[in-house]
Design a protein around this nucleic acid. Sequence first.
DNA 1: GAACATACGGACCCGCGGTCCGTTTTTCAA
DNA 2: TTGAAAAACGGACCGCGGGTCCGTATGTTC
Lengths: 202, 202
Amino acid sequence: MPERKSRKDAVRNREAVLAAADALFARRESPEDVTMADVAAAAGVGKGTLFRAFGDRAGLLRALYEARLEPIREAAEAGPPPLGPGTPPQRRVSALLDAILCFKLDNRRLALALEESGNGSPYQAEHYEWWHSLLRAVLEQVPGLTDSGFTAHALLAATRADLVEHLAGHERVPRETARAQLANFATRVLTSGPARELSADD
Amino acid sequence: MPERKSRKDAVRNREAVLAAADALFARRESPEDVTMADVAAAAGVGKGTLFRAFGDRAGLLRALYEARLEPIREAAEAGPPPLGPGTPPQRRVSALLDAILCFKLDNRRLALALEESGNGSPYQAEHYEWWHSLLRAVLEQVPGLTDSGFTAHALLAATRADLVEHLAGHERVPRETARAQLANFATRVLTSGPARELSADD
DNA sequence: GAACATACGGACCCGCGGTCCGTTTTTCAA
DNA sequence: TTGAAAAACGGACCGCGGGTCCGTATGTTC
């Protein structure tokens, strides 16, 4: 028996909370002045309900984030090129990074809230792990590239939510410019010719 | 007369706090379970004193960080090669990144505490601004490299404290390996594609 | 519709950053 | 040397936010 079905007021409230939180994070300047009590109030629900449904603040953030991310995740896992498999690795890396960047541009506050939300580094988050191993796997197929694990980390670091926020929000870099710069950067990393040192693969 | 000299108990206490905080951050697992009260107690001082001397938690962190960082900063600004000026740009970029990485490896907890310490992104911190503009200036002299502003951000992102912590602490990557990987990564970024390479380093 | 399971919600608790203010120490001029 | 103004001390105190508890309400089942 997988799981007994929830009561319907429970699911209704869950949705309400998700929606309210989404709206709040989008509206408020900084994620950290969206308080749990705020969310509960906005959803027309008691704090107890909120915490029962999501465990803690991080849980709520995670739920929101995963919900938003799922389409992209699927597209990356089994979608059509250039995001999905069956794309030349070099091109696919760029596409993946671009997708992540766009996602974070479109969900700045939320991504920010999740990544900086106190408890533990973003590097233990399940979704990070996922992106990292996917990217690493693809990088492994790029000829002449070593240290794909580290490289994946480094490339992903260029799409960190607070950096994106800084660029888009503070430095006023336009979306397309940011995308172009990231793409350019990725290209540089991938197409470096001569720098192989201890590679024996390929 | 710029500023009247502080009372000597004030400076003594300031030192005591700095030392105590340093020790505490080094010892405790996570920076966030070093409380202000802890620091005050460890320094044998009241909370009031602590806050009067440093303004707030971020101020204390900043003071600690700056103190540790100063030597490297000077070395980078006016020291001998390869860190200082008068070094070929590519080599200098690597040297700078390596210095930052080593610094963060040696001061993991502290760097972590400062970068994640709630208030605002690390990107508004004065020291970040400093590193970024230095690195950007050097990158500007690398032939064939565009977007030096973004590139500087991206390279610095690869040395973020929580990433370093993840690599060194969680993935157990040895120091020298991490350094080599970062250097390799930097090299790739700098010696890209069509421009062939002119690296004769090492 | 009774009896059981489940969810509700807001009063409540706790720890932490930060402030306040009566007390103590330092300084300095007389 | 002294005494009073200036500066610093320190810990009780405050507000806020995350998280819990439990008596009450609502849905579910037979």
